[in-house]
Nucleic acid binder design. Sequence first.
DNA 1: ATAATAGTGTCTCTCAGACACTATACC
DNA 2: GGTATAGTGTCTGAGAGACACTATTAT
Lengths: 233, 233
Amino acid sequence: MSVHEHHRPSVTVDVVVLTIVDGVLGLLLHRRQEEPFAGEWALPGGFVLEGESLEAAAARVLREKAGLAQVWVEQLYTFGNPDRDPRDRVISVAHLALVDLPRFRTSVPTSTEVVTGAVEVRAGARGTHDDVEVSVRVQGGPIALAFDHSAIVKTAITRLRGKLDYTPVGYQLLPDEFTLRDLRRVHEVIQDRALTAPNFRRSMLASRELEPTGRFEEDVEHRPAELHRFRPR
Amino acid sequence: MSVHEHHRPSVTVDVVVLTIVDGVLGLLLHRRQEEPFAGEWALPGGFVLEGESLEAAAARVLREKAGLAQVWVEQLYTFGNPDRDPRDRVISVAHLALVDLPRFRTSVPTSTEVVTGAVEVRAGARGTHDDVEVSVRVQGGPIALAFDHSAIVKTAITRLRGKLDYTPVGYQLLPDEFTLRDLRRVHEVIQDRALTAPNFRRSMLASRELEPTGRFEEDVEHRPAELHRFRPR
DNA sequence: ATAATAGTGTCTCTCAGACACTATACC
DNA sequence: GGTATAGTGTCTGAGAGACACTATTAT
């Protein structure tokens, strides 16, 4: 039997775009214009085109729907339950994208239907790699997302927490130069727990992934912190 | 524009079935009967059917192509480069399956074209989460796999090594009852390094994930070890 | 000076691993 | 006895974290 005789689903990419804003995770959403789920919040996404790789499709969706280019993206998980789209069989290859706040902010105005939600992460009670509670809010109110996008966001948060253990996640979520306080806040939001500043400082410096710039933050009402950058790999 | 007007690729699942055998990882392969890559080694796989979830498709492939049921499976990564199949656009959702050796062995005879390869893992020189070298061998000789299946196997090994850090992987790769030596060998093969038996024993017992059965191995030429089992979650 | 945060020093506890030692099976 | 592996005891060093302390800025 030939490859041509088989069921052919539609394949999309959906992208969870995260940033750190005001002590929570910012999430890029748009309001759907069409059925199904017209008027509800959804992740930016789009169909994978002929001859287009999955990474290219994710990059195109970011560019077209969020005005973002040169963003760090990685594939997350593929959601393929047959009933996840009520119209038709649609398999979605979900991606995770991380951006720093300035670029996240400038991305929003490019499309009027794009807004920013907030993801509140509540760490599971028990061990460190336990389950996470995730709730998405828009202007304070908790909302449900279209399709299975809430499950996709939860998967993204879990992945992000996992990456934090062994990769310098802040590199994607902060501007080029940042204080150790900034970086600590990133970790605190993702892990949903307070970190002791002196210990955090030491462990980050010991990892040799940061280097000091010699420059200091300005316009703060206290002793200014030195700016650091991530050491090139 | 409607969902019905879009490019529709074929979607398959491919499964990396691993076990531990003779100090290496055993891998389930079959020899392709059809073009492209006829006569070459490939992972078991098949098209996702209409109305079938991805997990169901992976389970069906394991059942039909390897005679395996009730196997631990998790989704791995989705490979979607437009040229990965020379005939047509085929997106593959790769899965990782782990089986204990007795079931792996009984699975093979169900289909004459199924054979077992070996995956040699060579740990990257530097840190613990570094790159891994993977070579697939059949009867001693290194082979290349069809399509991008070598890349899929490498992704599977990397995932398996990552899981070892925080999950009791041996549960899937060993029979119900096993000695601590058996479990240590599993870890040694996956990590490609020798582990000190006393320390390994202590850390595994301290994790509270094992419990002793009171029974001991038999027919060994030395002091028999107590059999342990994984504590139910 | 006070407030606020940067940054240092130091102690403790846990855990990974090296390694010496004892225990128990078969030959 | 010898050999092989099971299993225990003990030490050391690295890293996480608590917490006291000093340093430097603005007001």
